[in-house]
């Protein structure tokens, strides 16, 4: 039985905090869980907190980019928060710059970014 990462909801934002060393299957489950919950809970934003994550390899990096793309199709914005400096250095050297993924330094800044994005959309 593969573990599942809990998905929390604050207002119209889904929050995922990754606290364990992720197995590939857990990563794939998370992708599906998030897609389903964005729709069922009518979420406008997703925050993925990787403060506790020591290693982001190409598989996890691709998962972050894929979740960002899926949520965009479902009318939600994704922000990855809390990336460690060593992880950022390693990802770039690995060749993954995660171009399409929005990031913020911490949860508070991530939520603020989503609020601004929502306000911009509402004005249009």
């Amino acid at each position: 039985m593969t573990e599942r990462v809990p998905v929390l909801r604050i207002g119209d934002v889904l929050l995922v905090s990754i606290q364990v060393d992720l197995e590939d299957q857990t990563v794939l489950n998370l992708q599906e869980d998030l897609a389903e919950q964005i729709v069922s809970r009518a979420a406008r934003g997703v925050v993925i907190d990787i403060t506790a994550v020591e290693i982001v390899d190409s598989f996890v990096g691709r998962m972050l980019a894929t979740i960002a793309s899926i949520s965009r199709l479902l009318d939600a914005e994704t922000v990855v928060v809390g990336m460690r400096p060593a992880v950022a250095i390693t990802l770039v050297e690995l060749g993954l710059s995660l171009g399409g993924v929005r990031t913020a330094l911490d949860l508070e800044k991530g939520l603020a970014l989503l609020r601004r994005a929502a306000a911009d959309t509402d004005r249009r």
Partner: peptide, 28 residues
Amino acid sequence: ARQQVRGHAQQCKLSLVDQTKFITAASE
């Protein structure tokens, strides 16, 4: 495998960035 390599990288006293790079390479 990642966890075993992490133990050895720490034992070797690699810097945090070098540990992260080595464990990531091992994961790939």
